[in-house]
């Protein structure tokens, strides 16, 4: 599995650089916490409707992802390291490494933000383990689709708002599925298996399409 081991080398490199600079993680964390605090103050002591709480959680995670993950490839372009990387690595390991890095960042963000959200919004979870599955699959899907969009954005001359604009239609089905699954887990009103299956399939499809598309984005 040379793709995987070479992808892991890229993942380790990105993690090492992130530990030293904390550029992406700071952006993710600051956005998430600012939004979380603002929302919790606005809500006060009121217990929100399960659907509204689920939507708020995923809006926070979505925009935090847009704030931090867009740097994945732009940083390589701006630092001039992309040439060295292109000569040394084939496209597939690059995608795998960057995808794993984005998943790691978002997972570590979710570990902090989701419990804090539940506490600040006074939200109870009726189905804790399915909720965990929804969060994990939703975050992995966010990271996967964000990775390919970040690669496209890095090649564009005008990068500013492109990430959110391009990612939104691609991520909309995922967000709707994640919000729906989260609401069900909060309210405990029906079975959540269909939502989890949808998120699982979205992840598989996004990953497969991204791996097929990425060599063209990376090389052309």
């Amino acid at each position: 599995m040379p793709w995987v081991s070479r992808g892991l080398a890229i993942w380790c490199k990105d993690l090492r650089i992130e530990f030293r600079t904390r550029y992406a993680y700071s952006a993710l964390l600051m956005f998430a916490f600012t939004t979380l605090v603002a929302v919790s103050f606005a809500v006060g002591g009121v217990v929100l409707d399960a659907g509204l709480a689920a939507a708020l959680l995923w809006v926070i995670l979505f925009f935090a992802a847009m704030a931090g993950l867009s740097r994945t490839f732009v940083q390589e372009e701006e630092a001039g390291t992309v040439t060295a990387l292109k000569l040394a690595a084939r496209p597939e390991p690059v995608f795998i490494g960057k995808y794993l890095f984005n998943v790691t960042l978002l997972f570590s963000l979710a570990v902090l933000v989701v419990p804090l959200f539940l506490v600040l919004i006074h939200q109870t979870v009726a189905y804790p383990f399915p909720f965990l599955a929804v969060v994990l699959l939703g975050v992995a899907g966010l990271a996967g689709a964000s990775t390919i969009v970040a690669a496209i954005v890095a090649r564009a001359g005008t990068r500013g708002p492109l990430m959110t604009v391009l990612a939104f239609p691609i991520l909309l089905p995922l967000l709707l599925g994640a919000i729906c699954g989260t609401r069900t887990c909060f309210a405990g009103e029906r079975a959540v298996a269909a939502d989890i299956l949808f998120l699982f399939c979205y992840n598989g499809a996004a990953l497969a399409v991204s791996l097929l598309l990425f060599p063209y984005v990376w090389d052309e």
Partner: peptide, 23 residues
């Protein structure tokens, strides 16, 4: 001149990384 290596890594770490991605 257009090619840059990773400024956040040491020289040895850069070489280790590029050896890794080249397999």
């Amino acid at each position: 001149p257009e090619l840059e290596l990773y400024g956040e890594l040491s020289a040895v770490e850069n070489l280790e990384f590029f050896a890794g991605v080249r397999g």
